[in-house]
Nucleic acid binder design. Structure first.
Lengths: 348, 348
DNA sequence: ATTAGCACTCAATAGTTATGAGTGCTAATA
DNA sequence: TATTAGCACTCATAACTATTGAGTGCTAAT
C-alpha cells in the first residue's frame, strides 16, 4: 500500500507521464478522457483497470475531475498547471519560427500594436493582446507646437519608440508661428529624454527654478504642463475575438459571458496584464488563476517585453482553458522577445 | 371575389394596418405571429378565421412567410420593407433627444469616431458604425515637417476636421530644422485648402510649373509627394459587437457566421456604407438588400453625413433583420445630422 | 502491483405520445 | 360579398421511455 491517501504528494514518473498525456489528449479532443480508449490510443502497456486506478489517484489529488460520475476525466486547473509546468521545463523555445519581417516593416507604435496582436491571433487561433509601454518608461524625444486657431495650440510629442502623442491646448495669448518654433526647440531641449511620467515633475521643478526667466518660456511651460497633465495611460489592443467565437465551447452560456465581459471591459484584461509586466519570461494564468469573477474557464499566456532591460509592457494570447499551450507558449515567448528587441532598437 | 389572386397590388388600409402590426409584434417577440393570439392581443374586431384569410393573402403577396406549415407568420424582407417605409412616412424625427454634449466635447476626429459609434451602439443596443470622411473631401489645413533621424522626416498634416495624419518619409539629403520650418510654411501655403485627393495632382502640377524655382522647394515637394502618395482610404469604426452576441438569434449558426465575417472583414461593412454615402436621409437595408453573400439575416440602418452640403461619410446601426427600426431609424437620422453639423462647424 | 470480471451509472440518442397553437378549407351567416 | 364558425389536419415542443455504449468502482484472482 503506497501513499494513495495523501492528498498531496509528488507524482511518480508514470503518473506524470499519464497525467500529461491525459491533458494533452483533452486539449486535442475536448472530450473527457476514459480509461479504455485512452490506453489503446496511447499504447500504454497497462490494462484499463490499472489506468482507472491511476486516474482515481490523480482525481483524489485534484489533478483531474469527472463531469459526471460515469464519464471520463477532464483536467482541473491544477492538472493544466502541472502539464504546463512540465512543458515549460522541457520546451525548446528556439524552435519557434516567425517571419520577422512583420516587425521590421512597421515604424510607428500603433502600427506595431496592430501587427503584433494580429500576428498573435492568427498564429495561435485565439485572441492576441498587447499592452502599450508604461508611460513612465515612454521617453519623449521631440516636442513640436503647432498653431491651429488663434487660441488653440496642438502639441505633438514623439517618443523614442515612435509613438506620436497629440494634445490640444487652449491659450489666451496670441503667439506667432516663429515664437512657437522657439518654444518647440526650448521644450524639446528641456524635456527630451524624460518619460511622460517624469515630465510633469520636471515642468513643475523647472517652473519653480526658472521663475526669473523670460515670460516666453513661462508660456511654453504652461502649454506643456497642460498637455502633459492629462493622464497618459497604457492602452490595450485585442485582436482575434472572432477566433474565440469559432470555438464551440466558448459560445456556451458562461464562457460566452466571459467573452462578452472581455470585449465590453477591455480594462479587465488590461489590469491582468499590468500585474504581470514585471515577471520574467512567459507567465501562464489558467482558469481561476485569472482572479476575476467576470472571466471563467479561460486562460492567458503572457510575456512582458522590455526596452533595454526594463520590462515596460506585455503581450499575450487569451483563449479557453483548454488551450494548445504547447503551441502558444513558445509563440508568446518568442514574440515577447521580438517586441523587446524591436522597441529597444527603436529607442536608441 | 376581390383581387386575391394578384401577386402584387396595393394593400388596402386594413391590410396595411395588420401587416404593420404583425411586423411590429414580431420585432417585439421574435416569435411567429399566429392568428388567434394576435387578434386577441391587438383587440382587432375580427375573428381569427378572417385574420387567417388576410394573413393568407399577405403571404401570397410575399409580405409574410411561415417557418413551417402549421406555424404563425413571420415577416419577409418585403414585409419589413413595407413596415419601414410606413415608418419613414409617418415618423416625427424631431422627437429624438440625445445629449448633444457628447459631440461637442470632442475636437479630434478619431475621438469623435469613438464617441459616435459608442453612442450609437449603446443607444440602439445593436452595433454602431461610422465611416470616416472621404479623402477627396478631407481638406488639409496645415502641414508641418519634423526631423526624426538625419534621414527621416515626419510629415504631419492637419485637416479642417481636425484629423491628424502622420507619415514618415526617408530622404537622402540633410536638412536643418530651420529649412524644414521654411518647407512647412511653403507646403502649408501651397497645399492648404486642397483635399487629400487633390493634393497629389496639385503637387504634380506644381512640380511641373515651378521647375525653375529653388531646389529647396523641389525637396519640400518631393517629401510631400511621397507622403501624400500613399493612399489615404476611408476607415471604418465598429462598436458594440457584444450587443449582437447578446441577441440569441444572432448566435445561431448562420447568423453567427455573418457576424464573424463582419468582425473579420470590416471591409464588408465599409463597402456597403460607401455605396450609400450619396443618398439622402436615412437609408435602410433589410436582409438580402445587403447584397453580400457573407451577411444573412441582418439589417443596416445608415445615414450619410455632410460637410457643408457635400455628403462625405456615413454612420449607421447594424443588427439583426428583426431590429427595432422604430427606435433605430430616428436615432440614426438624428445622429447623422448632428455629425454633419459638428463637422461642418469644425471645417469653417 | 496488476488485471479480469462484473454490476452499475449516466449522457446521448432515438422512439413514442401528448399537447397546443397554429393552419386551410368549407359551409353557414350577416 | 365579406365574415365567421367549425372541423380536420399539421407540426414544433416537451415529457416519457427504452436502448446503447463508454465509462466507472470494486472485488477477487493472478
Amino acid at each position: 500500500m503506497k501513499n494513495e491517501l495523501q492528498a498531496d504528494r509528488p507524482l511518480d514518473e508514470r503518473e506524470t507521464a499519464i497525467l500529461n498525456a491525459i491533458v494533452y489528449e483533452y486539449i486535442l479532443t475536448g472530450k473527457p478522457v476514459g480509461s479504455r480508449s485512452f490506453v489503446q490510443k496511447y499504447s500504454f502497456s497497462l490494462s484499463p483497470a490499472t489506468m482507472r486506478n491511476i486516474m482515481f489517484d490523480l482525481e483524489k489529488m485534484n489533478f483531474l475531475m469527472q463531469p459526471h460520475t460515469s464519464s471520463g476525466r477532464v483536467p482541473t486547473d491544477k492538472g493544466y498547471r502541472y502539464y504546463v509546468d512540465s512543458l515549460l521545463d522541457n520546451y525548446n523555445f528556439h524552435e519557434m519560427v516567425i517571419d520577422e519581417k512583420i516587425f521590421q516593416r512597421e515604424v510607428q507604435l500603433d502600427k506595431i500594436f496592430e501587427s503584433v496582436t494580429k500576428m498573435l491571433s492568427v498564429t495561435s487561433n485565439y485572441a492576441g493582446v498587447m499592452l502599450s509601454p508604461r508611460p513612465d518608461f515612454t521617453v519623449v524625444k521631440l516636442i513640436e507646437l503647432i498653431q491651429l486657431e488663434s487660441s488653440e495650440i496642438l502639441l505633438i510629442a514623439i517618443t523614442r519608440t515612435g509613438m506620436i502623442l497629440t494634445r490640444k491646448v487652449a491659450i489666451s495669448v496670441r503667439v506667432t508661428q516663429d515664437e512657437l518654433f522657439e518654444y518647440s526647440k526650448f521644450l524639446t531641449g528641456e524635456l527630451c529624454g524624460y518619460s511622460l511620467h517624469d515630465i510633469k515633475d520636471r515642468i513643475f521643478e523647472n517652473l519653480r527654478l526658472d521663475k526669473l526667466s523670460s515670460s516666453n518660456r513661462e508660456l511654453a511651460l504652461d502649454i506643456a504642463q497642460i498637455a502633459f497633465n492629462e493622464a497618459t495611460d497604457s492602452t490595450i489592443n485585442i485582436d482575434g475575438i472572432e477566433n474565440l467565437l469559432r470555438i464551440p465551447e466558448m459560445v456556451e452560456e458562461k464562457r460566452l459571458n466571459s467573452l462578452l465581459n472581455i470585449i465590453e471591459e477591455k480594462n479587465i484584461l488590461k489590469n491582468i496584464l499590468e500585474t504581470h509586466i514585471d515577471s520574467e519570461g512567459v507567465k501562464i494564468l489558467i482558469g481561476e488563476e485569472i482572479e476575476n469573477d467576470k472571466v471563467t474557464g479561460c486562460s492567458l499566456v503572457a510575456s512582458s517585453y522590455r526596452i533595454g532591460n526594463k520590462p515596460v509592457g506585455a503581450i499575450g494570447v487569451f483563449g479557453p482553458t483548454r488551450m494548445d499551450y504547447e503551441k502558444v507558449v513558445p509563440l508568446v515567448d518568442y514574440t515577447g522577445k521580438a517586441v523587446s528587441g524591436l522597441l529597444t532598437k527603436m529607442s536608441k
